[in-house]
Amino acid sequence: MAAALAQVQQRTGRFVLDGLAAVGRFAALIVEIGRGLAEPKVWLPRTFAEAHNIGIGSLFIVLLISAFAGGVTALQAGYQFTGNIPIYVVGAIVTQSIVLELGPVLVGLILAGRIGARYAAELGTMRVTEQIDALESLGRSPASHLLLPKVLACLLMIPVLVVFADVVALLSGWFAAKQALPITDQDFAYGARVFWRPFDAYYSIIKAAFFALTIGLVSCYYGYMTRFGAAGVGRSTTGAVVSSSVLILLLDLVLAKLLLVP
């Protein structure tokens, strides 16, 4: 019994120490990425190239999923709000749920998979094939050459993709509502306007920026810290996607509490 207890204590202690070490490494990596800002000639062109890659590359899947999400939201709102509730409420529900929640969170989760996996796998492969060591051996900073462009590209493109997603989801929601429900354009537009506050749009973009930073930093961390060959790259990729997704959901809650609830 005492031996089992000691083992539990030992494992708990190791888990806590490993966790603290990971937090320390993550913080050190953020500092390193910050230092990379001193070399704009290096990171600026690479940032644009990365932004182009992830922006264009992600546009189709983001628009497709947001179109479906908008349509489904409108149909479900119509299904739930029947009877004495005025039909224009559908416009309000669709607008608010897309801009405040579905747009940024859905896009965040999709891109955590798409971009997060790509960055973690790319950096992890570079690590295990000594390409990152090679960069350092040339007196060059992996932060300004590899990490900072990826984080900045996320920060630059993900909010833009969220705006596209919001607009497409709204249009598809409007279209779906008109096809399936007895709602006019005027009703939908009235509903969309009646609860609308300009801050809602800012909130969507603020959330997108936080999610972008999360995806960029977490995937770079997992990729950069990869060890132990191909299996390690696989672990890093999975870790990056899972951790980014969980942190996005956690941030969603925290930001709602901080920015929406007085």
């Binding site: 790319e122 570079m126 094939t129 000594e130 390409q131 060591d133 090679a134 960069l135 350092e136 051996s137 040339l138 007196g139 060059r140 900073s141």
Partner: peptide
């Protein structure tokens, strides 16, 4: 250290070429 490394070339076992 970065300045010192610029005076030392390192040839990696598998080349470690930047594959992109």
């Amino acid at each position: 250290l970065a300045r010192l490394r610029r005076r030392i070339g390192y040839v990696f076992q598998n080349g470690a070429l930047f594959d992109s």
